[in-house]
Design a protein around this nucleic acid. Structure first.
Lengths: 352, 352
DNA sequence: CGTTATTTTGATAATAGTCAATCAGGGTGG
DNA sequence: CCACCCTGATTGACTATTATCAAAATAACG
């Protein structure tokens, strides 16, 4: 399907990865060190490069650096293979222009997912020039200019994601603004000891990833789908152009930012001083607010305990214990994994 | 100095407060219930009203409601006296248009401070029309338009605040954007059990209070000076006009919002999973970043332990213990209350 | 110089995290 | 169809961390 260049010095891993890639019909070139890798990249011009970080002669960073300099190879997507211990250098790597990273040990599916996502990115890459109507307001005031954002959305590529797929990772360079056509997305940050904390939950018609586009150099959180999700990818450039041109768009995003900020501050206060019970109650309530289907009194949350814990910001076991407490107090009910909120009102009372 | 209407049913408090007010030369009118208060307000048209919340006949909310309806009395600043237990209704009150509140039991100085601040507000109130040059870009491109924000700052009233004075309180209606000419300000939120958590630290040339102006209906945090501070008060209307007119101003604040948001997210992760040591180290480091005088290696922090604790988000005693630990580890030194950061580098290492 | 506030220390309790074991459901291959 | 395995959920026992309360020491202030 695609030409993949694999740079890896460890023989076991190299053969293993090469096999996986061959199995799904990719054409694989292998290099056992950085120098070889660079040469091969220039000669074969692969569609994507997967490279180890720690290697003799030139390490992964070096390879990336060299290839990014040469216009002929600078656009090839680059994925790092790295072990946990080197994770701290990853931000550095992403800044150099890597597109993704995979932490060893990894599953074949992780690798293939990452590969697929990055290849997809590129296929979208040849950024369509914006419909000229959108750029020229005076021309078509009635249709396009009424909602330039809508216009842009209609003109952008969309992409389908399965469950638990990663949209972008912490440390990567933001290249799109994402709009959720359908599905759910959460963004989270990882703490050093492996615990995650969910920063935001998004649903249909939400924009994801605007903050780093407006300010940051790289993503500060990871975005992952929670179920099958269809996203519209709005290239950074187009978004910037839009913001530049339409004050109302700017205003809209300023509002989003401000609201988000105020919400975060509230969360911060809670994270610092709330008891476990309150944290859990707060997580349940906010989930309800985000995803509840209209007016229904009793809503149901279907989510793994792990995920819930990373929303509440607590250990999984502690979360479970609190949930059982809540159950005994008839605030919630649990049937086959799902959590039914029975007494939303009392739950909210807990938060005062 | 000013005409003050005091509405309070409890005789002890009434007499006590009246005495304090008389002592500082205010002309005091007293009412012992809401009905009387309303009448007196309409008749005497005081400069400011101080009213209890819980009262027979009409309660404080009622009084406020009635007076806000009548244009003749609607602009009179209104301060509530309230006990802790009623605190939950305060947001409601502020939304109705109260300007401040004081929680019983209170010190005479609290009362006088609040009074003074609110009286000052009004004196500034007759909003100066913006220099027409600022509104009309084409007119004076070179000077005014180069930095419309600067222009506005030059045209706005400024105010001096002493140490530990409150600029605005959580729940009040935002009416100004503040710019710090000199001094330091912190904003914090209060948790129900009385513990505070510092949200932001501001120094010279910082803007304070922009988020609620852009989005919220009322202040979500309290702003307090940390030392003698000179502020420029930019009326909400003028700020909005500016944002409306100058994309570059909008952009600037959008940047501020976005940066602030990313920072908050980082803090959130820390608040959820960091150990005490890390929280304290993080507080010290960020204080250094904000207030350090240029390149100096060893900076010094002079701040009460209480305040520090509310930055780190921990109990005062826990903070102190951690500080002593740090001292033994030669990361910091403490001399007469001040904290000297000796080994900033190692302190930052703690955060990884 | 006495008095009050703040800081520090000590002892104790509460809370939530960790690690290990068990349980329940769902899918798989024989 | 059933034993088996694997994963995620739950429970139990224990521990570590940090808050709390009280008391002592120190600084601050009039």
């Amino acid at each position: 399907m695609a030409k993949v260049l694999l740079i890896e010095d460890d023989e076991d891993i190299r053969l293993n990865v090469a096999e996986i890639l061959t199995l799904v019909n990719h054409e694989v070139f292998v290099a056992t060190n950085g120098r070889e890798g660079v040469d091969l990249a220039k000669k074969e011009h692969p569609d994507i490069i997967v490279s180890d970080v720690m290697m003799p002669l030139i390490d992964g960073f070096g390879v990336l650096h060299v290839l990014k300099k040469d216009p002929a190879t600078s656009t090839i997507p680059f994925i790092f293979l790295t072990s946990k211990s080197e994770a701290c250098n990853l931000r550095e790597a992403m800044r150099l222009g890597a597109n993704d990273y995979i932490i060893k040990p990894f599953e074949g599916s992780d690798l293939l997912n990452a590969l697929e996502t990055r290849l997809k990115d590129v296929s979208v890459q040849p950024v369509k020039e914006l419909n000229p109507n959108t750029a020229d307001i005076s021309h078509s005031l009635d249709k396009a200019a009424t909602d330039p954002m809508q216009e842009l959305l209609n003109n952008c590529e969309s992409a389908e994601y399965g469950k638990k797929q990663i949209i972008y990772k912490e440390g990567s360079t933001p290249r799109y603004l994402y709009f959720i056509k359908s599905g759910k997305v959460r963004t989270y940050k990882s703490h050093e000891d492996g615990k995650d904390l969910v920063m935001n939950l998004y649903g249909k018609n939400d924009f994801v990833g605007y903050a780093p586009l407006l300010e940051g150099v790289f993503q500060v959180e990871t975005a992952e789908t929670m179920e099958d999700t269809e996203l519209i990818l709005i290239p950074k450039k187009d978004f910037e152009k839009l913001v530049e041109q339409y004050p109302e768009v700017t205003k809209k995003f300023m509002g989003l930012l401000a609201r988000n900020l105020l919400e975060k501050e509230e969360q911060l206060l809670g994270a610092a001083y709330n008891t476990l019970r309150k944290k859990v109650a707060s997580a349940l309530v906010s989930l309800g607010r985000k995803y509840k289907i209209e007016q229904e009194q009793n809503y149901i949350i279907i989510m793994s305990r792990d995920e819930l814990a990373s929303i509440a910001g607590t250990a999984t076991e502690s979360l479970i214990r609190t949930l059982t407490d809540f159950k005994h107090e008839r605030l919630i009910d649990m049937k086959n994994g799902g959590i039914v909120i029975i007494d939303q009102h009392k739950l909210q009372q807990l938060l005062r």
